[in-house]
Structure formats: structure tokens, C-alpha cells
Design a protein around this nucleic acid. Structure first.
Length: 198
DNA sequence: TTGACGATAGTCT
DNA sequence: GACTATCGTCAAC
């Protein structure tokens, strides 16, 4: 079952980040279909979160995408090398987003191996830059809706539901955000080997 | 117009 | 475990 855009219109981005654990992210680019179970996410909230690019509703050319309504993709370049994939949430005008930090590969593993040579299967999607590379996501997808006709969407995991616990942890690489760096806004599927290292 | 700096990953020691 | 590749973004000049 495909998740509709309305799923991402909830105002509580933190709760949504937790809900997304276990969902399936699917991409279909250049005729290649790849997908993975989301095992790690982070919440970023524009209103009052210094770790967020759009904190305090800061509006720039880059953050404009985060002001869209929930269900859009926000893809930006980090360290000049890695595209990172986020899902915009909340209603138009509230710049909230969920960063997808890790996935467990399901469909199209052979393509992911080709995109990421010399990498073990469990590590194919283990990190925010790895996720985009394994699934073939880049900055061209920025601002697009997460629907099949755009080549990216999310699904409920109804075919192979799995039991899992969710752990809340602090976010990675946001030390500059002061007290906001202490927020437990990272969620991981407990014990899953595909979760990113630190 | 310029320069400092990242929501990192891969390689080398 | 440390080192660096690499460039868009943004604020200050």
C-alpha cells in the first residue's frame, strides 16, 4: 500500500520520524527499481530547532523546499559530495523534515551492489549518503512529490511485516546546534545491522 | 565577489 | 583511527 501525501501532513515531525521506521522507500530511476526498509531517521523542525537549515523559519533558496507541504522530497548536498534525502512534513509554511539515515535493502540489491562496489550488503544503505547512492537519488529529485509518477514513493510494509523495537537517540553531526543537539530526535530499528555506525 | 564551512564516506595508515 | 575529497550555500565584504 502506497503512503499518500496526507500521511506527511501531521504537525508532529518527531512522531512522524518514529512512524517511518519500518516503512519501505522505493525509487524507480532509469528503469531500475530499488527499495529498502527504513531503519534510521532523524527529525528536523524549522520552528525552534537550531540543527535545522530552516530554523526560526529562515528562508533561503535552499530551504525553500522545506516550506512546501508534507510529502515532497528535500535533497541537498552535504560536504560538497553527498546528496542527503529528506521527506518534507507538516503543512505548507512549516519547514519540517525527516532525514532518512539508513535503509535495509529489499528490491534491486544487485543494482545497489553495482552502484556501491566493494560494500557489504548490510552496509549498502547504512548512512544518509549511502541511502541516496544505493537508491539512485540525487539533487535533481529536490522538490518533487513522493509519488510513483515521479519515480519515488513510500509504502507500508504489508508483504513482510516484521516485529521490531524502536530506540530514540541523539542526532549525528549537529554539535553546532547547542542544546538542540541533545534532543532525542533520531530513531533506529533496534538491533538492525543496517543502522549507520556511530 | 569572496571565503569559510558543512545533517559524510572512502581510503589509507 | 585519522585524513581528505569537493562544492553548494550563505553571509559578509
Amino acid at each position: 500500500m502506497i503512503l499518500p501525501s496526507s500521511f506527511f501532513h501531521h504537525s508532529d515531525v518527531v512522531n512522524l520520524a518514529r512512524e517511518l521506521i519500518g516503512k519501505i522507500l522505493v525509487t524507480e530511476t532509469e528503469g531500475i527499481r530499488t527499495s529498502g526498509i527504513i531503519v534510521e531517521t532523524e527529525a528536523y523542525r524549522g520552528a525552534d530547532d537550531r540543527a535545522c537549515h530552516a530554523h526560526n523559519y529562515r528562508r533561503t533558496a535552499r530551504t525553500e523546499t522545506m516550506f512546501k507541504s508534507g510529502g515532497h522530497a528535500y535533497v541537498y548536498l552535504c560536504y560538497g559530495i553527498h546528496p542527503l534525502f529528506n521527506i518534507v512534513t507538516n503543512v505548507e509554511g512549516e519547514p519540517d523534515a525527516v532525514l532518512i539515515r539508513a535503509v535495509q535493502p529489499t528490491d534491486g540489491i544487485e543494482w545497489m551492489r553495482e552502484r556501491r562496489p566493494r560494500v557489504k550488503d548490510a552496509k549498502l544503505g547504512s548512512g544518509p549518503g549511502c541511502v541516496t547512492k544505493a537508491l539512485g537519488i540525487d539533487r535533481k529529485q529536490n522538490g518533487k512529490l513522493l509519488i510513483p509518477s515521479e519515480g519515488m514513493w513510500l509504502e507500508e510494509n504489508t508483504l513482510a511485516p516484521i516485529e521490531f523495537a524502536i530506540e530514540a537517540r541523539t542526532r549525528i553531526g549537529v554539535d553546532y546546534a547547542g542544546e538542540d543537539a541533545q534532543r532525542l530526535w533520531r530513531f533506529v530499528m533496534a538491533g538492525n545491522p543496517c543502522v549507520s555506525k556511530p
